Lab assay of single mutants.
Amino acid sequence: EPSQADLDALLSAVRDNRLSIEQAVTLLTPSSGGGSGGGSMDAKEILTRFKDGGLDRAAAQALLAGRTPA
């Protein structure tokens, strides 16, 4: 399960175009075949909204942490 520091680094990389959204989703869902963790939004949607400015960093982190299976 990614830590808050991992999520923060991942969000920074996506925002700075050092990591594509697809690459980030793969890192967030290493063994689930890329499927959502059952959250209301999947990781790709969360990351896309964050990059487009629709979500701030704290909200994106909380959503990603919340949808990651324990």
Rank of each mutant, 00 (worst) to 15 (best):
F50Y: 11
L7T: 04
F50G: 00
A60N: 00
D6V: 09
G33A: 07
I46G: 01
A62L: 08
T29S: 13
S20K: 03
T48Q: 14
L27T: 04
I21G: 01
P2C: 15
I46C: 02
A65D: 09
S12Q: 12
D56K: 04
R15M: 15
T29W: 06
M41T: 09
A65I: 07
A9N: 06
T68E: 13
R18L: 13
F50I: 01
L11F: 05
K51T: 03
L63K: 04
D56C: 05
D8K: 05
K44T: 10
G54W: 09
R49V: 04
S12E: 14
G35K: 09
E1Y: 15
S20Y: 02
G35H: 13
V14D: 00
V14K: 00
L64W: 01
G66F: 05
S31L: 14
F50W: 14
A43Q: 05
G66N: 11
K51D: 01
M41N: 07
L64M: 03
S20T: 14
G38T: 12
A13V: 02
D42S: 13
V14N: 00
L55D: 01
T26K: 15
F50E: 00
S32L: 14
A58L: 11
G34Y: 02
A65G: 13
I21W: 02
M41V: 10
L7F: 08
G35I: 08
S12N: 09
P30H: 09
S12P: 02
A70W: 00
Q61E: 15
T29Y: 12
D8A: 06
P69K: 10
G54T: 11
I21A: 02
S32V: 10
A60I: 03
E22R: 04
S12F: 03
S20V: 02
P2W: 14
A24F: 02
P69L: 08
T68S: 08
D16K: 04
S3T: 07
R67Q: 15
L63F: 04
G66L: 05
T68C: 11
G54Y: 13
E1T: 13
L64I: 05
L47Y: 01
S12V: 09
K44R: 10
S40N: 14
L27P: 01
A24G: 03
A70F: 01
L55Y: 04
L11V: 02
A70H: 03
N17Q: 05
Q4I: 15
P2D: 12
P30I: 13
R18E: 07
L28F: 06
S12W: 04
L10M: 06
S32T: 13
A43Y: 14
M41H: 07
G39Q: 10
Q61L: 15
G38P: 12
R57F: 15
L28D: 01
A59W: 05
S3K: 10
V14C: 02
A70P: 11
L11C: 02
D6S: 11
P69R: 13
L28V: 04
D52N: 09
D6P: 06
T48A: 07
R67V: 15
D6M: 13
R49K: 11
P30Q: 11
I21S: 01
E1D: 12
A59P: 01
L28N: 01
N17C: 05
A70C: 14
L27I: 13
D52Y: 07
L7V: 10
A9H: 08
D8I: 05
N17S: 09
I46N: 01
S12C: 10
R15L: 11
G34V: 12
A24C: 05
S36P: 12
K44P: 02
G35R: 06
L55P: 00
A58I: 08
A58Y: 08
D56Y: 02
D52I: 05
L19P: 00
S36C: 14
A43R: 06
E45C: 09
K44N: 08
S20H: 03
A65F: 05
I46F: 01
I46V: 06
G66H: 05
R18F: 06
R18A: 08
Q61N: 13
L27K: 07
L64E: 01
A43H: 06
G33D: 11
A13Y: 04
G37V: 13
L11E: 00
A58V: 11
D42K: 11
L47S: 00
Q61V: 11
P30D: 06
R49M: 08
R15T: 06
S20D: 04
A65L: 12
S32H: 12
R18G: 04
L64H: 01
S12Y: 03
E22A: 09
R57N: 06
T29M: 08
V14Y: 02
A59H: 07
A5W: 14
P30R: 12
D16F: 04
A58E: 11
S31V: 07
S20W: 02
G54N: 15
V25M: 07
A65N: 11
L11Y: 02
Q4N: 14
A58W: 07
T29N: 11
T48R: 08
Q61R: 12
T48C: 05
A9K: 07
A59K: 08
S3N: 10
G38R: 12
L19K: 02
A5T: 14
R49T: 03
